[in-house]
Design a protein around this nucleic acid. Structure first.
Length: 120
DNA sequence: GACTTGACCGGAC
DNA sequence: AGTCCGGCCAAGT
């Protein structure tokens, strides 16, 4: 049981990123949904913070994550990129209504395999 | 090592 | 319809 030097840092965000990568084009997930899929309901803010530090050109479909109201969460920090998010989604044939909301009933991602499988 | 900062959510009023 | 409020916790200062 010795060696404590193996500081396996298990990046928490790694799981978030892996899960987000599973979202198919044309579908979206909410922050809370991601948290729940990771068996951590209520930790939605962590998802937002994780995506906050994602590079725009990273191989992560960050644009497929919206808030529980079906809207794109904007931030002073990301000015301009929130518009990009909408464009990327529209390219996947996702439409927004006059209020800038998308229909979650229609576009929400429902993973077939259990979440635990998705992380392997 | 304490304190601040968030792409959030759900319930209460 | 709105608004307010507490909870959640990793990273950065």
């Amino acid at each position: 049981m010795p060696m404590k030097t193996a500081k396996t840092k298990t990046p928490v965000y790694e799981q978030i990123y892996m899960l987000v990568r599973q979202i198919p084009a044309g579908k979206v997930a909410t922050y809370g949904q991601i948290a729940t899929l990771l068996d951590k309901p209520g930790h939605a803010r962590q998802i937002g913070y994780a995506l906050y530090r994602v590079e725009v050109d990273a191989d992560i479909p960050w644009h497929r994550v919206v808030n529980a109201q079906g809207m794109i969460s904007e931030s002073p920090q990301r000015q301009g990129n929130d518009d990009l998010q909408r464009l990327l989604l529209e390219q996947e044939e996702i439409t927004f209504n006059a209020q800038g909301k998308l229909d979650l009933r229609r576009y929400r991602w429902h993973p077939d395999p259990p979440p635990s499988t998705l992380l392997e």
